[in-house]
């Protein structure tokens, strides 16, 4: 066993070598793992040396100090209060001016709040509308229009309105169901041509993209918080935290054979908000 001073010296020597090594590694172009290790040794050496030094050579005591009680010092407190009140009395005599000063500060404070409004645009109806319009074609993310035949049973296709592939509130998923099992809701009978059915891809729980599809059970999964939507029941949530069905996009096939939107979504897409029922 080395004497403590020897061990401390050793730790410091290691630290010095590691620091030199670090400069060399850096000069040679850097290497993440080596840098980490050398930094560990360089810093750790100093740590070991300081703590070892304190442990072996420095007075540990224990020493004792009294803890002066500052809880109950009525004298000092009263003095402070008196000093404050003496000044406040002089000020308070100008009763009218004190009021005006308060009013001026309050008015300035209120005026200073207004720039907060500059931070963002007015919500208006922006949560209720997307970029889908009547007759607008469905295109893939790279802008390719889609024919009904392009939608293959069992796969999930993400589409956008033509010319708006960066409109993230408009992202929509297409799935094709065997024609015989499609049971459209009343009023939606002509929304799913050839068994192709379109839902908003934005989860109604916290807004993640609903990106997973199980073709056997015809269920859509949100990978963020595991909400499950049943495509056979108009994307009604059947498990997990989501509460609202994924809004369905009415679509049809146009004369050129391309899929187009019949209209925008009929309800707000994405997560709920306070006034969603009025939107």
């Amino acid at each position: 066993m080395r004497p403590p001073s020897g061990r401390i010296g050793c730790a410091l020597t290691l630290s010095i070598f590691a620091s030199i090594g670090l400069t060399i590694v850096y000069a040679l172009g850097g290497q993440t793992q080596l840098e980490g290790l050398l930094l560990f040794v360089a810093l750790g050496g100093i740590a070991v040396a300081l703590v070892g030094w304190a442990h072996n050579f420095l007075p540990k005591g224990p020493f004792e100090q009294s803890r002066e009680e500052r809880m109950a010092k009525p004298v000092a407190e009263t003095e402070a209060e008196e000093s404050f009140e003496a000044g406040a009395d002089v000020v308070g005599r100008r009763y009218f001016l004190v009021r005006m000063l308060g009013l001026a500060v309050a008015a300035l404070g209120a005026a200073a709040v207004f720039p907060v409004r500059s931070l963002g645009t007015r919500p208006g109806r922006s949560l209720s509308v997307t970029s889908w319009r009547t007759g607008r074609r469905l295109v893939t993310e790279d802008g390719r229009p889609i024919k009904a035949a392009d939608v293959i049973e069992g796969t999930l296709l993400t589409v956008f309105p033509e010319g708006h592939t960066d409109a993230m509130d408009s992202q929509t998923i297409l799935v094709r169901l065997p024609q015989q099992i499609v049971k459209p809701l009343p009023g939606r009978e002509d929304w799913s041509p050839d068994g192709i059915i379109a839902f908003s891809k934005v989860c109604t729980h916290a807004g993640c993209p609903v990106g997973l599809y199980n073709e056997e059970s015809h269920r859509l999964f949100c990978p963020c918080h595991q909400s499950v939507f049943d495509v056979l029941k108009a994307a009604k949530p059947i498990a997990g935290p989501a509460n609202r069905a994924l809004p369905q996009l009415p679509i049809r096939v146009d004369t050129g054979g391309y899929l187009v939107a019949r209209s925008d979504f009929h309800e707000p897409i994405g997560p709920s908000f306070w006034s969603i029922d009025h939107a």
Binding site: T32, Q33, L34, E35, G36, L37, L39, F40, V41, A42, L43, G44, I46, A47, V48, A49, L50, V51, W53, A54
Partner: peptide
Amino acid sequence: GLFFGVFAVCTALGG
């Protein structure tokens, strides 16, 4: 010493 120790552990993890 503890400061250097914490720093050392963070750099080792980081590297």
